[in-house]
């Protein structure tokens, strides 16, 4: 199936609305993150909360990539989600936007590697893998992950991979399946 790459007003509004929905959901997740972090900090595993919940934060990317099937839609969806989160008063301030771009490009790569031709379980899994690797690399710099001992580093990576797979992979697939059954997206995205 061929999809047009042009963005129209309706697509832009739809993408922003989806991003805002996710921004609101991220914002609701915030307290969970705080509780989890507070619980894990005394044993020095506070950052693990970030990895456990990573999947929720990166969902907007693969989902908008999948829904719009356009070049750049995953990046744009994730970035707008982060902008919304920042304006709602997210915890990470200005770095939220940078994380948004990093996460967006990370999940976009999965679709880029398949040439924006395949939108199936394979490209979604590829997107999960690129997201995990790229965002982990970014956290090695920004959050000082690079200094941890190797055992913890591997554990955090595996936790992040599982979390991303569950939310950005399995859950995204379930959402897309529900959407496909409505037959609304085919007329909307073309």
């Amino acid at each position: 199936m061929k999809y047009s790459n042009a963005w129209h007003l309706r697509d832009i509004i739809l993408l922003t609305l989806i991003a805002i929905f996710f921004g609101v959901i991220y914002w609701i997740v915030g307290p969970v993150y705080n509780l989890l972090t507070v619980a894990l900090t005394p044993v020095g595993l506070g950052p693990a909360a970030n990895d456990i919940l990573m999947g929720i934060w990166v969902m907007a990317g693969p989902l908008s990539g999948y829904v719009f099937k356009k070049v750049g839609s995953a990046t744009l969806g994730e970035f707008l989600g982060s902008v919304v989160e920042m304006f709602l008063g997210g915890q990470w301030g200005a770095s939220t936007m940078i994380s948004g771009v990093v996460q967006g490009i990370a999940s976009e790569l999965g679709f880029t590697f398949t040439g924006y031709k395949r939108y199936d379980w394979f490209s979604l899994n590829l997107s999960v893998l690129t997201t995990t690797i790229v965002t982990f690399g970014w956290d090695m710099i920004r959050n000082g992950y690079a200094k941890y001992n190797i055992g913890l580093l591997i554990a955090l990576f595996v936790i992040r991979l599982i979390s991303t797979w569950i939310f950005a992979g399995v859950l995204t697939k379930a959402i897309v399946k529900l959407l496909d059954r409505t037959h609304l997206m085919q007329t909307q995205t073309r």
Binding site: D11, L17, F21, I25, I175, L178, Q188
Partner: peptide, 25 residues
């Protein structure tokens, strides 16, 4: 937060509103 229905319904609402808003504009 892990229920697909939550996101599904959110996207359906977005579809509806985006259509309306784009037409209104």
């Amino acid at each position: 937060i892990w229920s697909p229905q939550l996101y599904f319904k959110a996207i359906l609402a977005s579809l509806d509103w985006s259509e309306n808003l784009a037409e209104a504009m």
